[in-house]
Amino acid sequence: MEEFITTHRMNPDIDPVLTIWRWQVSVYLFLGGLTAGLLILGALSVLQRRKAAPTAAQRLLVWTPVVLGVGLFSLFLDLEHKIHVYRFYTTFRVTSPMSWGSWILLLVMPVSVLLIAGTMRETWPGLYAWAERKGLRGLATFSEKRLMGLARLSVALGVALGIYTGILLSAYGARPFWNTAILGPIFLVSGLSSGAALVQWMSRDEREHRLYTRIDVGLIAFELFLIGLMLIGMASGPERQQAAAHLVFGGELTTYFWVFVVMIGLLLPVLLEVFHLKGRPQPRFIAPAFVLLGGLIFRFFIVEAGQLTTWIGY
């Protein structure tokens, strides 16, 4: 069967293939996932020790609002009607994942700031002293008293944020490559892995460094497993999903996926981490840098792959 448009439809960003979402969205999804990972790991560190402590996981909490802010700015750059950005917050649409995401993001920001306020006396004494000078001691005291509750809330919000970044795409039935519920968990695990990589990179304590290296090995292995499940589900699905799977099994994104996403983005860093755990010397930043790069490449890949798959073949 051959079908083509005879009266030229060449709507910008729609034809010949969808290119509505570009690097801005990929960067946002990556930084959103990284925020989720840092928030969850930092909050879990608080919960595990039952107190604030100057671990790398907790110290990195201070970056969560910054990373999320940069991500949101990137998303803002993608909006075509920027002046109407406030419209996200004049309603709540229960069927729209993007609406859910907008409100989740609005909750994550203040909760992460409170968690930082509750831990900074231990993690960033300089910041605590600065806050004290600015008359913000009350905020720190307020948060310290409620630290465990804030940490639990942060874990829940971090999971919601991490999963949402995947569901944002998976809810589009019109794009078969995205339309798989497992994308939510994959993005959450990938975000956790990015977070663990950053903790591993920044940790100055050898025990903590090794712990987060081991955690990251597990997370990457789990991510590979989930991606495998996603492809099996797609390849054994109905016609449209099979066509979507073909993108990485002989189709135009085959090299991109297997070389950049799988080999450079996942297998190489996990191997480097395993070698590191086995005592092979290597620069400390190499493995985590590849994990973070892999997370970014994965978001770029998914955003592009979904837009290449459609129900109508012209």
Binding site: P12, D13, I14, I20, D78, E80, K82, M98
Partner: peptide, 22 residues
């Protein structure tokens, strides 16, 4: 409309587009 393009991604018929105004 914020021009977020969620509706464009959701349409299986690719019937929507962003006007130059955004």
């Amino acid at each position: 409309c914020t021009g977020c393009k969620a509706c464009i991604a959701a349409c299986p018929y690719d019937a929507r587009y962003v006007r130059p105004e955004g």
